[in-house]
Design a protein around this nucleic acid. Sequence first.
DNA 1: CTGTATTGTCAGTTTAGACTGACGAAACTG
DNA 2: CAGTTTCGTCAGTCTAAACTGACAATACAG
Lengths: 191, 191
Amino acid sequence: MAGRGDEANETRREVEDRFIEVWGEISGLWGVNKSVGRVHAVLYLHSGELDIDTIAERLQISHGNASTSIRDLMAWGVVRRVHKPGDRKTYFEAEQDPWTWFHTTIRERRRREIVPVMERMHEAAGFAEGVAKVAKGGEKTELAELHKRIEKFADFAHEFIDLIDAFLAMGHGRMSKAFRMMAKLLPRGRE
Amino acid sequence: MAGRGDEANETRREVEDRFIEVWGEISGLWGVNKSVGRVHAVLYLHSGELDIDTIAERLQISHGNASTSIRDLMAWGVVRRVHKPGDRKTYFEAEQDPWTWFHTTIRERRRREIVPVMERMHEAAGFAEGVAKVAKGGEKTELAELHKRIEKFADFAHEFIDLIDAFLAMGHGRMSKAFRMMAKLLPRGRE
DNA sequence: CTGTATTGTCAGTTTAGACTGACGAAACTG
DNA sequence: CAGTTTCGTCAGTCTAAACTGACAATACAG
C-alpha cells in the first residue's frame, strides 16, 4: 500500500510542479526573481502549512535562498508568518485571493519604484525648462525643442501614474466590472 | 566663440543625460535592458538624425551593443530605419508619441510573453483537473482542492488578459478619457 | 534560565545575461 | 563593378545578480 501512496504523491507533485514552474516564469516577466515566484507558488498551494526547510526541500533550493525569498514576499505584503500553538516552527501563509495579491503588488511597486522614477523624470523636465529659459538666440530655440520632447514624455508618465491610481482606488468588484465593460465595449484587437 | 559653443553643447548634453538615464531606469523596471532603453531615449530626442556609430559614441557603448539594441527596438516596433538621399548611412527614427509607443509595446508583450505563459497556466489547470477526475477516495478530495486553487489563479489570469485586450482595443483618445474619468471617479489612493 | 530547534544573514561562489570587438555581409558611390 | 563605408553577427569576456552554506541571532520548551 505504500506503493500506492508514493504514486499518488508523485502525481500531486507533478501537478504542483507545472503550476509552480509557470508561476516562476510569470514572476520573471514581472521583474521578480524566479525563485521568489516559485516559493510564492508553493506557499499559495499549501497556505499556512509550510516552514522554511520544507519549502527548501520541496523546491530543491538552499535554506538561505528560501529564507531570503520569503523575506522578499513579506516585504511585498503577500505572505505572512503564522505560529501554531505547541509548535516551535514558523509557518508561512500566502494571500489566497489573486486580485488582492495583485492589488497589493501594484501598490508596492508604485511606492518603491514608479513614484521615485517619475519624480526624477519631472526633475529632468524641470531642468530642461530652466536651461532653455536662460539660453539666448539659436541655443534657446534648440533647447526649447529639447525641453518640449522631454515634457511630452513627462506628461505621459503623469497620465500613466493617474491610471495606476485609478486602478488602486477601485476595489476588485468595481474594477473587474469596469474592465469587463471596457472589454465588451469594443471588438477585440487581437492580431 | 568656440568656447561658447562647447559650453552650450555641454549643457545640452547634461539635459539629455538626465532624461536618458531616467529612461534607462524605467526600461530596467519594465524588464528591458537599460542599454536598450538609453538607445531608445537618445533616438527619441534626436529622431531620424542618428546613425549607429553616433549613438554608440554618444552613450559610450560599443558599436555592436548599439546595433543589437536597435535591432531589439525595431522588433518591439518602436524604431524604424530611415534613409536619406545621397547619404550612405542608415538613420533611425523613434515613434514620437509615447502613448502609441506604449500601446505597441503592450501589444507585443501580449503576443510574445503573456499569451504563451497563460496558455501554459491553463494547461497546468487542465492537467490538475484531469488528474483529480480519475483519482479515488481521499486522493480525489485532496487533488480536487489542489485543482481548485490552480483554477482560481487561472481564472485571474484570464481576467487579466481581458484587461489587456480592453486596453489594446481602445485608441489613445478614448483610453485616456476613460482613465481620466476613472481617476476622477474616486479619491486618490496614495500612500 | 539553559539548551536546542529554527530562522536570519551575508561573504564567497556560481550562473545568467550583457557587452565588446573583430570579422564578414551588405549597400551605396563613383 | 571595384572600392569603400557602414551595418549586422556572434564567440569570448565581463559584470551584476542569484544562490549556497556556514555561522549568528532568535525564540521557544522544559
